[in-house]
Write a protein that binds this DNA or RNA. Structure first.
Lengths: 217, 217
DNA sequence: ACCGTAGTGGCACTAAGTGCCATGCAACAA
DNA sequence: TTGTTGCATGGCACTTAGTGCCACTACGGT
């Protein structure tokens, strides 16, 4: 018995156990960030508010920045799963649908998306983090397109351009919705943007899909 | 005279003063990262190797990650300057030229570009950092395009798609060159990629440039 | 010789993130 | 009931990035 066994229950009476520790941490973090800012909120503050130990935070989130994107990995998995099952559909159509999937994941928790937007505008570290997570979506899309296209550098270029364009369209619609304060339904704007990119990219992808050098001339 | 005045010259005999401290730090950092890895190299290691005090490192680079991209800000300024002067040229042409400008900045220091590539593949934090700096280029391009286009959401969308496409093409050519080990001149591939994107984006930009709603109907 | 400025050295301090082990708890087996 | 096994958490020590502050030096101007 080297240590004093003062292990009180983490949360004496409040906070029913129904909410997972991970959710408690994320909720406490968002609240504190909104209240006193990201940089002046320490991990100690968050864990105190969530009623857990400091060490526990890093068991649920690899870093302080990651708590802003609590479900990023699951969305990424969902997109991967969808595209993994889309071996028969038209590649551009599948990527368009994946773009909608990503967009809907942001619309599932609008308050959090808005809070995150506020934070990423103010804290450059978080902005960089968001950019990095968007790049992961782009990577998933381009990997899929490359898997559906011949193994040429022209097709690889087309895949990257298309993936970047869909992601750019997604971001533009999302940002415009966020800048407007999350007023009206952004889905029509997303449909228009996805249609624009689909029309733009279809010939590029089709051209890349053409096998063999016989058509060059 | 509270402190002992043991202020020896930082570098007794080696390292002529011709090289700036900033360059010494960057060179030492690249050497150490290549030798013993990024994460197991501390700022102390770098400053010891460069013959300066630890505190001095952070006067030249805001963080350890930034030492990998020592001239990123100057390149960004160069691109901004070029685009700022391109108020008369065709927007797509100007952005294409800006893309070449960015690419050339990487080709100015090929060894460093290659070393950076190796590091960003292994260290996720550096990969994220690179993605963030690429996003800054994309931002500069899209800001320029928006400034040259009418203030509509369609034009904004077109600007973002075009900027993302040029950057994606740039990255694809650069990555392919890096993966090939930096063998042959990548400029022809860049020209082809830039031409592809230019052809693809020209109609989108032209369509966005059309003023007035009279054409909608 | 005197001053102001800019860059550097040195030190203390905060906070993020990691490693390690003890503890508590739930499921399960005897 | 008791023992065991596995897992998640608590708690602590430690390293390291990054900041604030002040002393010192060098250099240029007067």
């Amino acid at each position: 018995m080297c240590y004093r066994p003062a292990v009180y229950p983490a949360v004496p009476s409040a906070a029913p156990t129904s909410e997972s520790i991970r959710d408690r941490l994320a909720r406490a973090a968002f609240a504190l960030f909104a209240d006193q800012g990201y940089e002046s909120t320490t991990i100690d503050d968050i864990t105190r508010a969530a009623g857990v130990a400091r060490r526990t935070f890093f068991r649920h989130f690899p870093s302080k920045e990651d708590v802003i994107f609590p479900d990023h990995d699951s969305v990424l998995d969902r997109v991967r799963w969808y595209l993994g099952a889309s071996t028969k559909t038209e590649p551009v159509f599948a990527v368009a649908e994946a773009t909608r999937l990503i967009f809907e994941s942001f619309m599932e928790t609008p308050e959090r998306t808005i809070a995150r937007y506020r934070l990423t505008r103010e804290v450059s570290a978080l902005r960089d983090r968001e950019v990095a997570s968007v790049a992961k979506y782009e990577r998933v899309l381009s990997d899929y397109l490359r898997s559906r296209l011949p193994d040429t550098s022209e097709a690889a270029l087309a895949a990257h351009i298309a993936a970047a364009s869909f992601v750019a369209a997604h971001n533009q619609v999302l940002r415009e919705w966020l800048r407007s304060g999350g007023a009206k339904d952004p889905r029509p704007a997303l449909e228009a943007a996805v249609a624009t990119v689909s029309d733009l990219m279809a010939p590029l992808i089709v051209r890349s899909s053409r096998q063999g050098p016989s058509s060059a001339g």
